[in-house]
Simulated scan of single mutants.
Amino acid sequence: MRISTSGTRRWLLATALCGVLITGCSSGSGGGGSDAKPQAKPAAEPKPLAEGALRPLLLSQADLGTGYVQVEEKPDSGKFDDVSVQGCPSLEKLGQSGDETMFAAKAETSFTYDTDATLGEELHSDRPSVLSSKLHKLFGTYTSCPTYTMTAGTTPIEVKVTKSATPELGDEQFAYTSTMELPSGKQVLKTMAVRQGNVVVMLVGAPALVDRHMETAVGKLPAGS
């Protein structure tokens, strides 16, 4: 399967592991007999926030402290547009969804720390039920195969995935850790997402940085989001 990584080349490998979102499945139960009682109308869900409303909620250098440098947005050269995955049928199926399965709105930023570590943040917004179903399926898929091979260009990269513990934040939490055998050596990345209402905070990067800053990232969301 091929995963589009357009717009996120500054942390390619992290995005290749978590940058494709899929539409969650839903199933309805049919009514019983003719004497079934009317169901109460469900409460209306909060509407998605627009990208302009998400951007002020992103982490900043002031939030992170010293040693962090925000990475300037650059046009995508297309060098890493295609990433292929082998050895994990569920991931191969996931890649067929493409960009059309993204959430309603998205904002993102990324930072380097002491020049050799990265921290990327994405904020997504949609109706809470949509966020929940997609996140459950997305993280379920990425943790379904303990090992697989990812090819960036012509370089095969062996990937090992393990589920990770999550803090008690927001309404739902998801996390996994990926260990990649790169030509330059081993790289470990942690992906963690916390849903609070109609907004999801997703951090990807060095595990210590993700663990250190998730509470701050969730704390920037407005109450009741």
Score class of each variant (00 low, 15 high):
174 F>G: 02
65 G>Q: 04
10 R>I: 05
96 Q>S: 13
127 R>P: 03
95 G>P: 06
45 E>L: 15
108 E>R: 14
106 K>T: 14
40 A>D: 15
194 V>A: 06
134 K>N: 06
141 T>H: 04
114 D>N: 12
176 Y>D: 10
186 K>E: 08
29 S>E: 13
36 A>K: 13
51 E>F: 03
187 Q>T: 09
140 G>D: 00
183 P>Q: 09
21 L>K: 05
2 R>A: 11
29 S>F: 07
8 T>R: 12
38 P>W: 02
194 V>C: 01
84 S>L: 14
3 I>K: 09
53 A>D: 11
189 L>Q: 09
142 Y>E: 13
96 Q>L: 15
114 D>Q: 09
209 L>P: 04
39 Q>G: 14
144 S>L: 08
160 K>S: 15
73 E>M: 15
195 R>A: 13
99 D>H: 10
91 L>W: 07
203 L>F: 03
146 P>E: 09
102 M>Y: 00
135 L>Q: 02
117 A>K: 11
16 A>D: 08
47 K>D: 13
114 D>I: 08
80 F>C: 08
88 C>G: 11
92 E>L: 11
64 L>Q: 01
65 G>E: 01
80 F>I: 03
4 S>P: 00
145 C>R: 02
145 C>T: 03
145 C>V: 08
218 V>H: 02
176 Y>H: 14
26 S>K: 11
176 Y>G: 09
35 D>A: 10
225 S>G: 06
71 V>H: 14
15 T>C: 10
82 D>C: 12
42 P>V: 09
128 P>I: 05
105 A>C: 01
84 S>F: 11
26 S>N: 08
182 L>H: 13
44 A>H: 10
36 A>P: 07
196 Q>E: 10
225 S>Y: 07
158 E>M: 13
219 G>S: 02
194 V>E: 00
179 T>H: 07
109 T>P: 06
49 L>C: 05
179 T>G: 04
